[in-house]
Design a protein around this nucleic acid. Structure first.
Lengths: 154, 154
DNA sequence: TATTGTTATACTCTATAACTATA
DNA sequence: TATAGTTATAGAGTATAACAATA
């Protein structure tokens, strides 16, 4: 056998496999990759991934107050204030005081917001397709299924 | 069919599926779960997940300087200073000036550090096993394989 | 009294710039 | 001059506390 230091030097960039193949490491870096690509893909739309999530949530069902939206997205309500400020500044949403309970702000998605949502959703779909491109379609579905099982338990 | 608002109300906690099954959402929350469970499991050892990564890296192969370790883990070198400070405070590592180049600190894992590493690694193994418990063994391997393909491209 | 939205504050994590000692 | 380590600082992101309006 060859003497001297063996350096497999894989695509892990020199990181030893006992670190690189840790589930935590893999999940963190997979998440990071998707996050970065999403941010880049949404740049032309002028919104962040989290703002897209808010727009999606506000369009999905019943009108929601800031706090309801925050709770569903596990975002702090004080953070939601800043996010709605930002989205309102871009005129993608509008605050409407709830006539029944005037403490609450119903956050409505404007027409421009819905257009941005459609555009951004298409771009996000493409990010996911590209990210999963190395897997065949069956494995892509498998991955999503396994992750949702692990995260939601169903 | 029943009239009125339909509320499937799955285990997504009220979050609409078009959000909950997004790859970014799934990866972020899977990562978060593993991260939290890791932190809790390592509490008795007195180190964080990142500190475990540093100990693993420093024990894996050739002795490394702070900056080499930082680069491999994609950590800023200023952050590595604080991490080595912390680990040195716990007497799990020791800084040894490199006799050949006295600018560099070779960071050596102490006996106590190696004991902590063994303990922590077992605990982390258990976290991963528990996290993957809902998958059969074959799917567990599949998931890890798919993620490493997506992250490293191999 | 409790709750929604808000503001101010603090705390963590990370990135940038500048300093020192060595090369 | 360039580099390793260090320190100080600033910037995101997020969490906590307190306040105003409303219930």
């Amino acid at each position: 056998m060859p003497s001297g230091t063996e350096e497999p030097e894989q695509s892990t960039g020199g990181l030893p496999t006992e670190l690189a193949y840790r589930l935590g490491y893999l999940l963190k870096h997979a998440q990071q990759l998707v996050h970065e690509r999403t941010a880049r893909a949404l740049e032309p739309v002028g919104i962040s991934g989290r703002e897209l999530a808010v727009l999606t949530l506000l369009t999905a069902g019943t009108p929601l107050s800031q706090q309801e939206a925050a709770r569903l997205l596990s975002i702090d309500r004080t953070t939601m204030v800043a996010m709605v400020d930002e989205l309102e500044g871009k005129e993608l949403v509008a605050r409407h005081p709830d006539p029944i309970d005037r403490r609450r702000n119903i956050v409505a998605v404007t027409d421009a917001g819905q257009a941005a949502l459609r555009d951004a959703t298409e771009r996000l779909d493409k990010v996911e397709r590209d990210f999963l491109a190395r897997l065949d379609e069956r494995d892509g579905h498998r991955l999503r299924k396994m992750l949702s099982l692990l995260v939601f338990g169903d």
